[in-house]
Amino acid sequence: MPGARLLLRALHFGLLLAAAAGIMRLHPPQVTPGLAFVVLAVYAHGAARVFGAAGTAKALCFLEILPFFAFAVVQPGGSEPSAAWLGVVSGAAAGAAILGCEWLLSRGKATFGTSLGFIGACCLAGWGMSVLPAGRFLGLTLLALTGSGYGLARRARG
């Protein structure tokens, strides 16, 4: 049913665009990068489940969210351009690290438990993004990304 699938994806992007338009009309800006990360990562996870995407297809689903995350970080203002860049890079690294850890721990089998764990990890990362200094948070996410990458590479080698 490629037509239905396409419609579903159109709805997926339509929701994201509507959220972006809503953010533009908020005053004063109330969307913090941490909150945007949690909402978008959980949304991307849900969308991937609906599309039946796993592995690289799920990673692609997350990559499609990245411009919307950047918009949510940059548009409300409140941070210097360099800090906004750092926030977006940190968010991307955190998303990739969580995806890597999920793939490593669930071995590709999505269950209710893995979903719950994924959402918990997203909330933890969003909280960390809000309370930790940007540099330290980026360091932690890069560490987690390296760890999960190493684990996945070892598994691929058998």
Binding site: P67, A70, V74, P81, A84, V88
Partner: peptide, 9 residues
């Protein structure tokens, strides 16, 4: 993502 930084700021 890169373009958003200049257009959405």
């Amino acid at each position: 993502t890169a373009a958003v930084f200049s257009l959405a700021a």
